[in-house]
Design a binder for these strands. Structure first.
Lengths: 168, 168
DNA sequence: CCACTCTTTCACTTTCTTTTGAAAGTTCAA
DNA sequence: TTGAACTTTCAAAAGAAAGTGAAAGAGTGG
């Protein structure tokens, strides 16, 4: 397989992977592109490589920077901004985990805690079923939260000490 | 908070959670509804509770059954089909993990393996950067695969023995 | 302060997903 | 075999999400 072809396929695959996980396809594609390029790219470069518009490029690059997956790079003597992505996939994974936790899990934990305080006769089976479900989910969510926290600050944690070393 | 209100909010929350994770919103809502109901519901019941059409209900219930998250229940003497969802959230989580792995991770592993065989001079920095990225991701994916496998058949595994007991 | 280069914004368009509801299909008791 | 009860399908409509590109904005060197 030729490099160009392989590159295209990788970008394509990473893009649809992102889409399945609720991440904008273009955003994932830009990320893929920057991951496999040895040097930083300009907005122009990205537009050309992926055949997307200026506006779209700008929006999604900005979002990637928000996620902490991409960085602005200034090349001395150049006016343009360049962009580059973290290439250590473990760091990428922890960044994503951190970000999704913050955006999704944390609000859910809040909601679930509220939902536990539903009033009603504990003998009513509807009330009981509801409370049981919420309690189970709440417990699960808190445990998931713990696991993700460990993963995210894995440098120092027990999780890293045991699990990560086994795999990395 | 009243039960009805809490129910509505839970369904709503679970629905948008699903949406963020690439699962159809209605599908997640039906799942939420079935999880908190003590008894099985008919298609009619689901339509009424969620204000959705017959076709939509049918499609998404079928999909939930495919995922292994919902079961058909036949009530003796009744012609209608009833549906119920697994209420143990740990089982739900392993079902989802199993299914997403099968649908997403497995195909990716295949693609990544192919992409490693890109031809080209290893001294060309573009080729090198590409190969390095793919190799890193490939390794990561295989390790993720192992972890998920352990999680999915957690009854028997080391993963269960150590991790799960700590949390469950 | 102007001219130039690059970045950001945003109203509009396009594309993709989801939902609907009527019609066709299936099942089963009588 | 019929028809009532229920389920499934599917084409069309609605809705949501993403992408475009022209115009406005920002920063910089002359």
């Amino acid at each position: 397989m030729k490099l160009a072809e392989a590159k295209a396929q990788f970008i394509q695959t990473w893009g649809s992977l992102g889409a399945q996980w609720g991440i904008n396809r273009t955003m994932a594609q830009i990320h893929a592109l920057l991951m496999i390029m040895p040097d930083p790219l300009s907005a122009e470069d990205i537009m050309t490589e992926l055949n997307i518009s200026r506006g779209n490029t700008n929006m999604n690059v900005r979002e990637l920077i928000n996620w902490g997956l991409v960085e602005r790079v200034l090349i001395p003597g150049e006016r343009k901004e360049y962009f580059t992505a973290e290439k250590d996939i473990w760091k990428v994974a922890t960044e994503i985990a951190r970000e999704r936790k913050r955006r999704e899990l944390d609000p859910i934990l809040k909601t679930l805690n509220q939902l536990q305080e539903v009033e009603g006769d504990a003998k009513d089976k509807h009330v009981k079923a509801f409370k049981d479900s919420i309690q189970g989910i709440n417990k699960f969510a808190h445990q998931t939260d713990k696991v993700i926290n460990s993963f995210v600050k894995s440098e120092e944690s027990w999780f890293y000490g045991t699990l990560m070393k086994l795999f990395k």
